[in-house]
Amino acid sequence: MSTTDQWLKQVLAEARAAGDPARLAAVVPYAQTMGISLLLAPEGPHAGELLGVMRFGEHLIGNPVLPALHGGALCALLESTAIFQLLWESELSATPRTIGLTVEYLRSGRPVDTFARGMPTRQGRRVTNVRVEAWQDDRSRPIAVASAHFLVHSDEGPAKLEI
């Protein structure tokens, strides 16, 4: 697989220099279409933490009767947040590629803004595992959680013995 894309490295450096992670999300057309962005938690115990946010829009509705957010939209927020976070918080030798993810839907997503935050559970040389939670008003009541694993290995990195 390829090393981190040059254009992405540049966007990342600019976003970091400006202290504005939203610039990173702004270059991904799908994130723009969905209304997915990034922000730094403003205050409280989590101040300064990178969060994914999906601003509510009618186009995210999956069940118009309730109404409730589409499971696929929540899945996208969880996966995007994990990838953005790996890019923002680690120095990867390659752009993370999703190997797989398992999403559990815990509560129906109401038609409001949704936030997400990932916790890397294992950062290996080739694979990183992340647990991501999505919530709305109350962070202690997640509406969906995902465990995801990403390929973060670059073949162009230093040669090491493969097991």
């Binding site: 991904v28 696929g72 899945c75 996208a76």
Partner: peptide
Amino acid sequence: VGNPETGVLHGGAISA
């Protein structure tokens, strides 16, 4: 699109 350089669809769209 997930990667504007390659034009490949984002994984999220495929998940949905």
